[in-house]
Simulated scan of single mutants.
Amino acid sequence: MKIASLPADAADGGGSQAVKAQLRLREMIFAGGLPGGARIAEVAISEQLGVSRTPVRTALMRLEQEGLLEALPNGGYAVRTFSERDVADAIELRGTIEGLVARLAAERGAAPVVLREARACLQRIDELLRETALDDAAFARYVTHNERFHALLCELAGSPVLTQQLERVINLPFASPSGFVVVQANSPAARDMLLIAQDQHVQVLDAIEAGEGSRAEALMREHSRIARRNLREALHGTPTAAQRALPGVQLIRRRG
C-alpha cells in the first residue's frame, strides 16, 4: 500500500523531510509493513514516501541509531529482530536509570513546581481509575498521563546528563514506560495492574519529597517489573486483540 506523498509545504528543508521519513518508516516497521530481517530498498522507500533519497538515507541512519535497523556488511540496512532477553534488558536498563533519577531527586531536593505538576498528573490518573472499567478512550488518556509522569520524574532530578541518557533508553524498541501497557487493555486484571502501578507512582513521589533516596530508587526499579510482566504476557499468554495489536510485537523472537 503506497503511503501518501509529503505535502509540498512540508518540504522546508532536508532536515524536516528526514524527520518525516523517519517517523513514516518507524510506523511501517511497527505495523509489519517492513518485516523483521527485510532489507530496506532505499530507492523503493524513496518512491513510496514521495521524498528524495537523501532524507531517506538520513532517516535510515537515525533508525539504526535507535536500534530498529542494522547496517549490513555490504551496505544498506535491514529491519532488526529482538530476542525476548534484548527487550527485557532494555526495560531493566530503563528501570535502573529511572531508579537513579528518583534517588538523586530525593537526595538533591526536587523543584516544588515540578513536584506539584507530577502530583496533578497523578490526580488525573486517579480520576480515570475511579471507573470500574476503562474504555479505549480512557485507556489512551491513561497512556498519555503515564508518559507525562515519567517525563516529570526525570525533570525532578534536574540532571541534563540523566535526561539525555534516559531519552536514549526510552527510544530503544519497546523500552518506553508505555511500551507494553497496551497489553493490559480490555483484560480482566487491567484496572488492578494499573492501580498497582499508580500506587507505586504515589509512593515514589512521597519518598522523593521525604528525601528517602534509597526507597525512591528501589520503588522505580520495582516499577519497571510491571513492564517485564507485560512482556511475558504479550509473548506467552493467551493471545488477545490488544496483544496482537501491540506495535512491533512481531519483531520479538519468542523463546522456544
Rank of each mutant, 00 (worst) to 15 (best):
R103P: 04
T240A: 01
T240L: 06
A227E: 12
R24C: 10
L68D: 01
G158R: 06
I91K: 02
Q198H: 14
A151E: 13
S214T: 14
D86L: 03
N186R: 13
R255A: 12
N171Q: 14
G256C: 08
R141Y: 08
C121I: 08
G50P: 02
L25T: 12
S52D: 15
R57Y: 11
L23Y: 05
V79P: 04
T132M: 04
L246M: 11
H223Q: 06
P188I: 01
L34K: 04
Q164I: 01
E66M: 03
L231C: 05
Q164M: 09
L205S: 07
A21R: 06
G13N: 05
A18Y: 09
T132N: 05
L195K: 04
Q250Y: 02
P35C: 04
S187T: 14
T163V: 08
A140I: 05
I170S: 02
A110H: 11
H145W: 14
L219W: 03
I91M: 01
L23A: 14
R62P: 00
A102H: 07
Q65E: 14
C121Y: 06
E167C: 04
R141L: 14
A197L: 02
I29S: 07
R254D: 06
L235R: 07
P55M: 10
T240Q: 08
D199G: 13
S176A: 15
L134N: 02
F30Y: 15
Q184F: 02
M193F: 05
L153A: 08
H236Y: 14
L100M: 14
N171H: 11
R62I: 05
Q17F: 07
R119Y: 10
P7A: 02
E155D: 15
L195C: 08
V202E: 09
G211M: 12
E155W: 12
R168M: 02
L49M: 09
R191C: 00
D206S: 12
G75L: 08
Y142N: 00
D12M: 04
A190K: 00
T81L: 02
G99A: 02
H201R: 15
D86A: 05
M220T: 03
A185W: 09
A31T: 09
Q164F: 11
G95F: 01
A59Y: 09
F174R: 04
Q22G: 01
N171E: 12
G33Q: 13
H236T: 08
G15M: 03
R94A: 08
P247S: 04
R80M: 03
P55Y: 09
I40V: 15
A227Y: 00
G109A: 11
G95C: 00
A102Y: 10
Q48I: 11
A190S: 15
E209V: 15
S214F: 13
R130N: 05
T240F: 06
H150Q: 13
T96W: 09
A234T: 10
